[in-house]
Design a protein around this nucleic acid. Structure first.
Lengths: 129, 129
DNA sequence: CCATGTGTATCATTACACCAATACACGTAG
DNA sequence: CTACGTGTATTGGTGTAATGATACACATGG
């Protein structure tokens, strides 16, 4: 895996280390990161995105305690072996549930018709090919 | 408007005052709060949700500086007169844009087919009556 | 007029989150 | 063995959220 595949927005309200953890969670659940695959080193990620190595280390540490990654001493961090390929679609969908509930609540507060929201979201998803 | 209509989650990562501001923004844009309608007093909201009056005051202050509310001296805060009824659908949809973009990105990372996401979201929105 | 109800300014205080910099321990690789 | 590359413990600085306690200015409403 390449450090350039991670998206990091230092300006976002969401803390950087959490951006990384959640991104890893999704990339692994979706199978874009395979079990055993070695992650870019803390310094590599930090250098590429101009952030501090400790911030990346914190993210990796959390991901490990969550069972996503495993530490290969002297080599780095790798996707945990237990995480084989992607999970089932319903499991992956569950990772989006909270966010979808929030969208539904906000749409309701905005008195937006469901079709309008679904149309826009559909367009956004398909434009990512 | 009743204080019970506001949803506040002190445990959420999102700061309370911002939860309130954004909720007001949506309720007003959606027309559920009509122009001129009086809001519950700072102490009323604070008492109902067991939070500090100054936290509510901060939210009201921000909402006013944003043009959402206007101060009626001696009476309280009311929905700004300039905000007549709801805005156009596209304007309201724009308030959801950022969140929808995030959903699309996450769905992509999860390798979820667009239909699965749209189905789930549609179900959630329609289950809100 | 005056009691009551608005919002708000002002501190001080507590708590916490985030992140940067340094220095360290450890295993790998040659 | 040694140089290098891992991750990370530690410390400190910075900013922010939220509370609590007053006190104030103001307008309403009886």
């Amino acid at each position: 895996m390449d450090a350039s595949l991670l998206t990091v927005q230092p300006a976002a309200p969401e803390p950087i280390y959490r951006q990384i953890v959640e991104q890893l969670r999704r990339l692994i659940a979706g199978g874009q990161l395979e079990a055993g695959e070695l992650l870019p080193s803390v310094r590599e990620v930090a250098g590429f995105h101009a952030i501090n190595p400790m911030t990346v280390s914190r993210a990796y540490g959390l991901a490990e305690s969550e069972g996503l990654l495993e530490r290969l001493r002297g080599k780095g961090m790798a996707v945990a072996a237990t995480r084989r390929a992607g999970q089932s679609e319903s499991q992956r969908l569950a990772l989006l549930e909270q966010q979808l509930v929030a969208v539904a609540r906000h749409a309701s507060e905005l008195e937006l018709p469901a079709e309008a929201v679904l149309n826009r979201l559909g367009r956004l998803m398909r434009s990512r090919e």
